[in-house]
Simulated assay, not measured.
Amino acid sequence: MPAYNPDSEVNSLCMTIGSWISSIERVNSKVNFDRVTPKAISQLIQELTSLAGTVCSIQERLEERNKA
């Protein structure tokens, strides 16, 4: 059985964030938002808002941890 690695979840997240950024940047630079349906725009706003809230939450926890 492999030894417990306390960094594994964080490392996994770090490896995927670059892909999210790339996808977001690609959409931002290539999509003509004037042609996207209101339904898709609304869904993207909702998902980005959720992502932003989650990012803020984990950043706050990390900052609290760094102060301790």
Rank of each mutant, 00 (worst) to 15 (best):
M1H: 08
M1Q: 08
P2W: 05
Y4K: 03
Y4T: 04
N5L: 03
N5C: 01
N5I: 02
N5W: 00
N5G: 01
P6Y: 03
P6N: 02
D7Q: 11
D7T: 09
D7W: 05
S8C: 04
S8A: 15
S8I: 12
S8K: 14
E9G: 08
E9R: 15
E9V: 12
E9Y: 13
V10W: 10
V10G: 05
V10L: 15
N11F: 02
N11A: 06
S12E: 12
S12H: 10
L13N: 01
L13Y: 04
C14S: 08
C14R: 15
M15Q: 15
T16Q: 11
I17D: 01
I17M: 07
G18W: 00
G18E: 03
G18D: 05
S19H: 05
S19L: 05
S19M: 08
W20G: 01
W20T: 05
S23G: 08
S23F: 03
E25L: 08
E25K: 10
E25H: 08
E25M: 11
R26W: 05
N28F: 06
N28C: 05
S29M: 10
S29F: 00
V31N: 02
V31E: 04
V31F: 02
D34G: 08
D34R: 07
R35D: 11
V36L: 03
V36I: 11
T37D: 06
T37R: 01
T37M: 03
T37A: 05
P38S: 14
P38L: 12
P38N: 15
K39F: 09
K39R: 10
K39Q: 09
A40V: 13
I41E: 01
I41K: 14
I41V: 06
S42Q: 12
S42C: 08
S42I: 01
S42T: 07
Q43K: 13
Q43S: 13
Q43C: 06
Q43A: 13
L44N: 02
L44G: 01
I45T: 12
E47V: 09
L48I: 05
T49E: 04
T49Y: 01
S50D: 09
S50Q: 14
L51E: 04
L51C: 07
L51F: 15
L51P: 00
A52Y: 09
A52E: 13
A52C: 07
A52W: 09
A52M: 10
G53M: 08
G53W: 04
G53V: 00
T54W: 10
T54P: 00
T54A: 08
T54S: 11
T54C: 06
V55I: 15
V55P: 02
C56L: 12
C56G: 15
C56R: 14
I58G: 02
I58F: 06
Q59N: 14
E60T: 14
R61G: 04
R61L: 14
R61V: 06
L62Y: 09
L62D: 00
L62A: 12
E63N: 08
E64N: 11
E64Q: 14
E64P: 00
R65I: 08
R65G: 00
R65Q: 15
R65V: 07
R65L: 15
N66P: 00
N66F: 12
K67M: 05
K67C: 02
K67G: 03
A68E: 12
A68V: 09
A68M: 13
